[in-house]
Amino acid sequence: MNHKHAIAAAALAMALTTVVSAPAEAAGKEKCYGIAAAGQNDCGNLAGTHSCAGQSTMDKDPGEWKLVAKGSCESMGGMLKAEAKKRYEEKKQKG
């Protein structure tokens, strides 16, 4: 096996590990609202004002979320989606 094939084999191993581990990892995680530091959120927010990771501008914004290990959200001071959405709607109604 030459050098290039060795690199390709290592790449294949890494790629397969990524493909296999990604869904399992996601299955053991949950979206946790209100814990992300500014600029460290994952994906879009509840307000729909952005759709990209890293776009939150406020620490612990209740509309922003991060993926955390399942069951750990509330102990970190965060809220699961149902509660976050309820609070967001209440806040929106109050204006």
Binding site: I7, A8, A10, A11, A13, M14, A15, T17, T18, V19, A22
Partner: peptide, 9 residues
């Protein structure tokens, strides 16, 4: 390449 392909996936 190995690190890149994992991150690209």
């Amino acid at each position: 390449f190995a690190a890149w392909i994992a991150s690209a996936i």
